[in-house]
Write a protein that binds this DNA or RNA. Structure first.
Length: 327
DNA sequence: TGTATTTGACCCGC
DNA sequence: GCGGGTCAAATACA
């Protein structure tokens, strides 16, 4: 696809760059936004999400865009998107002549490891415990490990080019502990959707702190609900929700007609990636192969875990060196 | 019937 | 050659 005009020749690269610039400007605007205006913040979040989707669409459509300036611009602005696939064929990215570049880029993706301990009888392998939806694509016996390692990728990998993956392996020393390694960040709709929800819920929680002090659901029940009532939202549903949020941002309320995975978890876990009482976790974060941060939590310091961990992870995403370019 | 999981095979780096 | 990561056909499940 090539977009041409007679004068001033708008090519794909130009339009792509304009999209990147627009998104960056919105991000700047968001920084300067008065924090007392949650509605405006939500609108800007939606604007950024829309621009992200447009950029993803351009790259998935095989647009020819120059990498250098985009890398500089997006990373300077703290853009945090994984490079989408050029096409949706699962193996096509590896089988092209430049497949090794992609493999290198995958290796370059930020990774971080969580140690998640679960209660007896419970497991995290089959369930998504981090508000994202994953699809298992492999399992492998690892040399020297008692338990096999499971491989998960983002559910929206094929239709949104999200390259986020995670590996789950039960610890050999302590079977109740799982090592969960995340690689890459979500560039799919659920990422922006969940973050928007998170922002809104934070605002809401400030207004309704009394409600936050309601007795929490029992731990087992909470965990069971993670697996039972979950429903994966389609892309259209996420878009619909996004539109609903835009239109109702002045008087926001949680949708109640459905129990999508993110809503259930958001409501039950107070916007945490894990139930604060049920898990104890430690985060070991790497960016480009370098350790950048380690966050430890324990059952005794769950209150510290709270938003700090989640926000740390969100912050880390901001430092992702990746941009939308996909040669 | 559509979607998710399982599992053997393949690919690639070391 | 070996081990880790991924693919994709087969299978299970709702």
């Amino acid at each position: 696809m090539e977009i041409n005009t007679i004068n001033g020749e708008w090519k794909q690269k130009d339009l792509f760059n304009e999209l990147v610039q627009a998104r960056d400007l919105v991000k700047k605007l968001k920084i300067h936004l008065d924090k007392s205006s949650p509605a405006g913040e939500v609108l800007l979040e939606n604007a950024i999400s829309a621009l992200d989707r447009a950029l993803s669409t351009t790259t998935r459509s095989g647009w020819d865009v120059a990498p250098t300036q985009l890398t500089a611009r997006t990373s300077a602005m703290g853009s945090a998107e994984s490079p989408p696939l050029k096409n949706c064929s699962p193996r096509s990215d590896d089988s092209d002549p430049h497949g090794t570049d992609i493999l290198k880029r995958r290796k370059m993706q930020p990774t971080w490891t969580e140690k998640v301990s679960v209660g007896s009888g419970a497991g995290i392998e089959g369930s998504s415990n981090d508000c994202y939806s994953w699809r298992k694509y492999g399992q492998k016996d690892i040399h020297g490990a008692k338990h096999p390692r499971s491989y998960y990728r983002c559910t929206y990998r094929n239709n949104q080019g999200c390259l986020a993956t995670r590996q789950v392996q039960r610890s050999s020393e302590d079977p109740s502990v799982y090592d969960v390694t995340y690689r890459g960040k979500h560039s799919c709709l659920q990422a922006s959707h969940l973050q928007t929800k998170h922002n809104q819920c934070k605002n809401q929680s400030q207004d309704h702190q009394e409600e936050d002090q309601k007795p929490e659901q029992s731990q087992e029940g909470l965990f069971e609900n993670f697996g039972k009532g979950l429903r994966i939202k389609t892309e259209d549903e996420l878009l619909l929700d996004s539109q609903k949020l835009s239109s109702s941002s002045s008087s926001f309320s949680f949708p109640s007609s459905t129990t999508p995975v993110d809503c259930v978890k958001m409501e039950n876990c107070n916007f945490l990636p894990f139930d604060r009482n049920y898990f104890s976790s430690s985060y070991h974060v790497q960016l480009n192969g370098q350790d950048t941060n380690t966050i430890h939590t324990s059952n005794h310091r769950q209150s510290d875990f709270d938003d700090a961990v989640l926000l740390d992870l969100v912050e880390l995403n901001q430092y992702s060196p990746f941009d939308y370019f996909h040669p």
